[in-house]
Write a protein that binds this DNA or RNA. Sequence first.
DNA 1: CTATAATGTAACTATATCAGTTACATTATA
DNA 2: TATAATGTAACTGATATAGTTACATTATAG
Lengths: 139, 139
Amino acid sequence: MISSRFTVAIHILALIEMSEGSITSAYIAGSVNTNPVVIRRIMSLLSKAGLIESRPGVTGMKLVRPLESITFLDVYRAVEVPENDVLFAIHQNSNPQCVVGRNVQNALEEPLLEAQRQMELSLANTTVAQVVRQMESKQ
Amino acid sequence: MISSRFTVAIHILALIEMSEGSITSAYIAGSVNTNPVVIRRIMSLLSKAGLIESRPGVTGMKLVRPLESITFLDVYRAVEVPENDVLFAIHQNSNPQCVVGRNVQNALEEPLLEAQRQMELSLANTTVAQVVRQMESKQ
DNA sequence: CTATAATGTAACTATATCAGTTACATTATA
DNA sequence: TATAATGTAACTGATATAGTTACATTATAG
């Protein structure tokens, strides 16, 4: 299961967009219903990915790019960091003296990477802006 | 990251197919390079999913259905059991007094389920038989 | 200039999952 | 009846996640 860092990160981006500059990690934590440090940790990942900017001592944070240009895939890549960006773990060190053991990793790699690609393509189809508009429309 | 139970399960199915009836969990463990109990645990999941049959006291196991009819998705569903079959965790209990907190779970559900569906569709495109043939061709 | 308040992190904890392992009950068959 | 295999329970170590406390750093309001 992909951790909730991902959806919390989208939550954070939505709040930054909607509150125009003067939002704090404590306020966001109140909306997400968690601890401010959890928010700041995810903010740190979003900063490293170049999606937001913030500075110690200065209240608030801002989007580096418009939300229309930030897809779910951008956020996913910013906060979910599986080993080598590989979604499916393939067991290692299987027995080279067995036809299956010798070839299984290689044979599985391509179809599993393809499944991962399809998921990522789908994530790239939705922007954070889209869900923000939808939430605003519901009030 | 999706656990290696999934690829080990494919490994197990391939060995059952190739060794026609007389294979043991100890032998499979030798090929996967792990402990026989790890194999039996996954066998148990494959049995519950109706993919293989085995009986205590009786050496060997057999496929219930031909490998041509078993897709990667069937195996994935047999051995990976995320909560409610949901791939993406969505944080719960966010603040209902905030527009985002009130609507975020609902707004995210559909695009995330769609990404999961795309991954699963891709997994359904490959059968275990296909990778067995490929491994056999490499020897 | 100083007090305040926010960010950025380190460090610790509790919890859960995974994979490996030991142990043993159950069961079919040679 | 002895043997050998499956089916599981139970424990361990490793790792990831999320929550929490603590504190250094930094900008700014007064």
